[in-house]
Write a protein that binds this DNA or RNA. Structure first.
Length: 583
RNA sequence: GUACCCGUAGCUCAGUUGGAUAGAGCGUCUCCCUCCGAAGGAGAAGGCCGUUGGUUCAAGUCCAAUCGGGUACGCCA
């Protein structure tokens, strides 16, 4: 969009002065944006201010040159210099009308760009321990990750959505033990309080797994040797939990491309391999970590112990990190070294990982690990997301995992639906907390942003249904190619402007890895549409359907079709199902 | 003690690689509509961008301090 305008501006800059050197500057480096205030014009560029210094000109002088060139451009209605050197300009209606045609012709591809140049990016998200059902935190993680993945695809990356399964370690053992205890209970043995300790998992789902264990393997398991039995219980429980997790994710519309098992990675001796690579670079040593300062609860237990450490400080971490415990076993982080080596070996140079904000202490060491293991060839971008507060009647719902009184992902989806959940989780910056008010999020009024957007889509669909009863179906081709010269109203042009900037909005959201910007752009587009709709109430000229003129109707419907395409595109990226009518 | 994040209107938040008079929704106030193109519309008030310094033509945005809030801090995963 605006390519020829960019070229025009760049030519003006080139010919303005031959003093400066602007070789290698492409049209893309000229930014065209919507000015803050409508009265200033439809479009603006700050190119004069960007290039003035290099050309040893004052911004305003250069702006005059640009302005003059723009005024000669066929699409430009008028342009003027403003402020310190901005050039504000407006386009002829015909130029905007061509945007409508372009949107309809390119359809789903309209928002696409090729920033990623088909390179691979690995988006790892959720990666919940398979020791319990997904909860609300995972919901934000899942939605954020999946929308980021869609965005990256949209700008031309080859995306892998990946889930890392922590299927070994203490937590899994505890789960297996909990299941076995419930299994015993099912066989009629009463549980001793001393057996079912606080560490055990007490949720209802544990009993369910135990029941399934009984069903699949019968009641004779307890005679198998302890180690073997525990191993069987581990595998069985993880498989069941994973199945449940996948179902939960599907209820939110999230489907992973790949699940990677920690056990599998470790069985391939990836830990040893990773440590070897680090050792080769001199980044592994035996040492003692300094005692953490301040009030850490474990302070009293502190004891200096020699451990095998990774020199992560060399790569920007605050302290070196333990990879082998004093008892000779690997730490969890060692497993992560292996996992990220695995990703690197699979060819990913760009990785994104989504973690809860309580993992903030983990970011630097992971970045260090990826950097060290790949000889700085690969990089990982870690996004932390904040908590979600759930409110009922405006009051926060207290949650504590210990008492089992926490909200599961499934409960939220069952209560308000996939689309509302997704929208709420994605509509704010990942760095800020979200208040999720069960009453407000499902409110059917213009105050509710999701309703507002969905309603715009539904209204458009409703107009098409109405039009069909009068003029019959109108195909896309006609909508794209029809004469659009009746589209001239300010409100119509404003809507087209918003559509024109959609690819920029998608690109910006993707590059910044900030999906919430998409929600904002969608709201703006919906707002322009509703405004236009309301104008039609008082000014019947602006109504979309003109019973007396099929040509006028088709022209107006073409604008609606373009709007519908983009709303659909945005909703698709967000994983929200567009509604063709409000019920 | 250290690291990361947040601090912008009464409330919840936007604010793009530094750009024009800092925006939106809610709430408040005023008017209009209540015509199935229904689940509202038009407008107004509301700000020392936590504080103080610095960098420059230009700072909510970058840097340094500082205050307030959150999170996390050796062998848990």
């Amino acid at each position: 969009m605006f390519q020829s305008i960019r070229v025009c501006i760049l030519d003006a800059i080139r010919s303005a002065s031959d003093l400066g050197d602007i070789a290698g500057v492409s049209e893309e480096s000229i930014s065209i944006e919507q000015p803050r205030e409508k009265v200033l014009g439809e479009l603006a560029t700050n190119a004069a201010m960007v290039f003035a210094e290099r050309l040893r000109m004052t911004p305003r002088a250069l702006a005059e040159n640009i302005c003059e060139a723009l005024n000669k451009h066929l699409d430009v209605r008028q342009s003027e210099v403003a402020g310190p050197g901005f050039v504000n300009f407006s386009l002829n209606a015909s130029a905007w009308q061509r945007v409508v045609a372009a949107v309809i012709e390119t359809g789903d591809n309209y928002g696409k760009t090729n920033i990623g140049n088909n390179t691979s990016v690995n988006v790892e998200f959720v990666s919940a321990n398979p020791t319990g059902p997904l909860h609300t935190g995972h919901a934000r993680n899942a939605v954020f990750g999946s929308v980021v993945a869609s965005l990256m695809e949209k700008i031309g990356y080859k995306v892998t959505r990946e889930f890392y399964i922590n299927d070994r370690g203490n937590q899994i053992t505890l789960l297996a033990q909990s299941v076995l205890l419930r299994y015993k209970e099912l066989l009629g043995e009463s549980l001793q309080a001393s057996e079912f300790t606080e560490d055990m998992y007490s949720g209802e789902y544990v009993k369910e797994i135990a029941r399934e264990l009984l069903q699949n393997h019968g009641g004779g398991l307890l005679s198998t040797p302890n180690e073997e039995l525990l191993e069987l219980a581990r595998k069985f429980s993880v498989a069941k939990m994973l199945k449940k997790i996948k179902e939960d994710l599907r209820s939110l519309g999230v489907v992973m491309d790949k699940y990677t098992s920690e056990t599998e990675v470790c069985d391939r001796d990836m830990v040893e391999e990773a440590v070897k690579i680090l050792a080769k670079r001199g980044d592994v040593y035996e040492g003692v970590l300094p005692k953490p300062k301040g009030k850490v609860s474990t302070e009293d237990d502190w004891e200096e112990r020699p451990q095998t450490l990774f020199r992560s400080t060399k790569y920007g971490d605050d302290v070196d990190r333990t990879i082998k415990k004093s008892d000779g076993s690997w730490t969890y982080f060692a497993g992560d070294l292996a996992y990220h080596l695995d990703k690197i070996k699979r060819g990913y140079k760009a990785m994104i990982a989504v973690l809860g904000a309580d993992h903030n202490g983990y970011v630097k060491r992971l970045k260090a690990a990826v950097s060290a293991l790949s000889e700085s060839e690969a990089a990982i971008d870690i996004r932390l997301y904040q908590l979600v507060n759930f409110l009922e009647d405006g009051k926060p719902i207290r949650m504590s995992k210990r008492s089992g009184n926490f909200i599961t992902l499934r409960e939220v989806v069952d209560k308000v639906g996939k689309d509302v959940t997704r929208f709420m989780m994605i509509s704010r910056h990942h760095d800020v907390m979200i208040d999720f008010d069960f009453a407000k999020v499902v409110e059917c009024s213009m105050k509710n942003p999701l309703f507002y957007i969905q309603y715009a889509y539904a209204r458009i669909c409703s107009v098409f249904r109405h039009s069909e009863t009068i003029f019959g179906p109108i195909d896309r081709e006609e909508l794209a190619s029809c004469d659009k010269s009746v589209i001239t109203d300010e409100a119509e042009i404003s809507l087209i402007e918003a559509l024109a900037f959609w690819p920029d909005a998608v690109g910006a959201a993707a590059v910044a890895i900030e999906p919430h910007r998409l929600a904002k752009s969608m709201r703006e587009i919906a707002s322009c549409f509703h405004f236009l709709w309301n104008r039609g109430k008082t000014n019947t000229e602006l109504r979309f359907i003109d019973k007396d003129s099929r040509a006028n109707t088709v022209a107006r419907l073409s604008l609606l079709e373009a709007t519908r395409c983009i709303l659909e595109d945005g909703l698709n990226i967000m994983g929200i199902t567009p509604l063709t009518e409000m019920t």
